Computed example of a mutant assay.
Amino acid sequence: MGAPDAQALVFDIGGTMTRAGLYDLAAGRLLRTERAATPSISAGASEPGPGLRTRLYDLMERLAARLGADAPDRIVVGFPGPVDEGGVALRAPTVWGTQADPEPVAARVKAIWPGVRIRVVNDLSAAGYGFLRHDRDDACIVTVSSGIGHKVFLDGRPAVGPAGRGGEIGHLRVDFSDEAPLCECGARGHLAGLACGRAVPDQALRLACRDPGAFARSSLAAPVAGRAARVDSHLVARTFRAGDPWSAALVGALAAPLGRALAGIHAAVGVERFVIMGGFAQALGPAYLAQVGQAAAASTWDLGQDWGRMLELGEMGDDAGLIGAGRLAAREWGGPA
């Protein structure tokens, strides 16, 4: 184990789970990790906003204690929402729902650990550092799980703008119909509301209404007693990978808006490497990636792009956010990137 002064305390906060780890800056690896359920709207919490926010910091302090990091001097926090350069989170819909008040995450963490050197960045920005092939790599990191997010890395840094508002394609409106599904942020028709794991029941119901007979013949119908709105992300991942045709059509409906969005990113900035991570994408596997690529190819002109090569699954698993946060810490405070 490295010396204490060569370690960073790293956090990956999600709407469902908060992970913490000790990262050895010199060795470039996680030493140990802890995790616990995030006190969040996503987990069914109903208490007022300020209390819910305080519970998150209490959880971070407990996880650090379980790691034996009671007095850290270097901390990187990956936070699930846009974050400005001062470590203020502008929104956090997966944690606090539609509450719109900015949250001074860096200041709250420093109140727990005075004198700490700290970086607070968007959680996908943190994870992205773990997927860069070198310090000046260009890549687009995309997460498809209970929500959708992305970060474009140019010359090894996430391009999020001076106020941290960039890289939030999950909240791009792509469906302008009156019946467009609600996003977790409270708006209608956002990409996340049509293409992530939480979008499965709504998209399943839409597809089943167009052709009830096809749904009735699918292997999904029996487990949900013929009620398409009961289809969830775990069930569709299982039947999709087993080759069920109706499940393939449903996954195609989920993949299409994401593919169109990625085509827009490619056309706008020219990035040609897209790393798709997140639990839902991982559960669906390479065949899902192929559907995203087909939708992307159909959404922009042909200049010889090979979308099959441009898209890849991120393979670091649950620790991706912690590993990326650790590599960011190594960049900031020494050690191998």
Rank of each mutant, 00 (worst) to 15 (best):
G321A: 00
A268N: 11
L258A: 08
V271D: 03
G304V: 01
A290Q: 02
W307L: 11
A295C: 14
G278L: 03
D306Q: 11
E315V: 13
I323P: 03
L313C: 06
I323F: 02
Q305I: 00
G304P: 07
L254A: 06
Y288N: 05
A295G: 06
G293A: 08
A248W: 04
L284V: 07
G324I: 05
G324S: 08
T300H: 14
A287T: 11
I323K: 03
Q294R: 12
M316R: 15
F274S: 07
L262W: 04
A320E: 03
A267G: 05
A268S: 13
G259V: 14
A253T: 09
L289S: 00
W246D: 09
A290P: 04
L328F: 07
A256M: 06
L322F: 01
A283G: 08
I265E: 15
E312W: 05
A295V: 13
M310C: 01
S299F: 04
G278D: 00
D318T: 09
A287F: 13
V251I: 10
I265P: 11
G243Q: 14
D306C: 09
Q294Y: 02
L284N: 10
A248Q: 13
P245M: 06
V251F: 05
L254W: 03
A261K: 09
L254T: 05
G324C: 06
G285P: 10
V251G: 05
G317Q: 04
R273H: 09
V271A: 10
I265L: 15
A281Y: 11
M316S: 00
D319E: 13
G293S: 02
H266F: 08
P286T: 13
G326S: 09
A320K: 01
E315S: 15
E312P: 00
A283Y: 11
G293E: 02
L311V: 00
G285R: 12
G285D: 13
R309S: 11
M316G: 03
L311P: 01
L250T: 00
Y288I: 04
L311I: 07
